[in-house]
Write a protein that binds this DNA or RNA. Structure first.
Lengths: 152, 152
DNA sequence: CCAGAATTAATGCAATTGCATCTATATAAA
DNA sequence: TTTATATAGATGCAATTGCATTAATTCTGG
């Protein structure tokens, strides 16, 4: 647990598991969405944030903070979402540079359809494999790996 | 823990943590490598497998099994590695379709230089934040999320 | 008010990924 | 054998990502 230049075997193993499992889970969920003829996970992340934000919408830079996507990535993802009619871009009164992104009814519907599949993946891949206590344990331990670290 | 169409709050939170933390950690490690003027993590994964395989090398399809990369991805990654002189492609005696990939001295050296940085990232991001017991707990819990699930 | 720095978002271009397909060889079946 | 099927790996083309830069405001210090 002390600062080392070379990681302990335990740290290496935990890291390896984390890398491998997260990749597998993402791949599985992504595949399930694709089979359902739905957009990729990244779209869900954004639609989810926007749905939670409600009518007020969010500024692109707020989406960046919340989702950890790169700026250019959000910029283009929003362009695609807008082209598909899932979000709309509104000028923002007090800042001529910016815009507010609001989810449309269509967007909410797509998000719901995605959740039907995405949620099932989560239930199957994670919910069905660990008990509630174990899941809480995972959340707590992973929470300590955040940047910046937190305990929550 | 039972099969549900809709995931429990605990499952959702654990999933969210896993997605977010893994992305953050990857990003951090990737950035550290870039700052060191070194190739991306994907290269390390392949070089690592090849280094472990030794002089006998590995067939591309074996790399696919071990790393979970897509076939076309490995095909092109190997082309880049070869172009950089980090691996060499050898014809394989008993199968005219295939080839054996072997890491070169240069490749071993690059892998070592990458590990100096990558290993430090693992130590800092994971090793320094959880005790050995906690790391083992993480490994065990994540191990149960693998596909197919295992206990190890 | 004005010049310089900072912030918000978009974009040109190169590299990578994803998809579908293709070539070549090996294996199985008739 | 001959033919059909499966496996190993490469590749054309479209979509996405990453990088660097740009354009348009807004903010800040004289």
């Amino acid at each position: 647990m002390t600062e080392q230049a070379t990681p302990s075997p335990e740290a290496i193993k935990a890291w390896a598991r984390l890398m491998r499992v997260s990749r597998q889970l993402i791949e599985h969920a992504e595949e399930a969405l694709k089979e359902g003829g739905l957009p990729p996970l990244a779209w869900y992340d954004v639609l989810h944030e926007l749905a939670e934000a409600g009518e007020g919408g969010l500024r692109p830079f707020q989406l960046i903070e919340r989702t950890l996507f790169a700026q250019y990535n959000i910029s283009r993802l929003l362009a695609r979402l807008e082209a598909d009619g899932l979000v709309e871009k509104l000028p923002v009164a007090d800042d001529g540079r910016g815009q507010t992104i609001r989810i449309t009814a269509n967007g909410r519907d797509t998000r719901r359809r995605m959740w039907a599949i995405y949620g099932r993946s989560i239930a199957e891949l994670v919910g069905a494999r660990l008990s509630a206590d174990e899941l809480n344990m995972v959340s707590a331990l992973l929470g300590r790996l955040r940047y910046p670290p937190a305990s929550d």
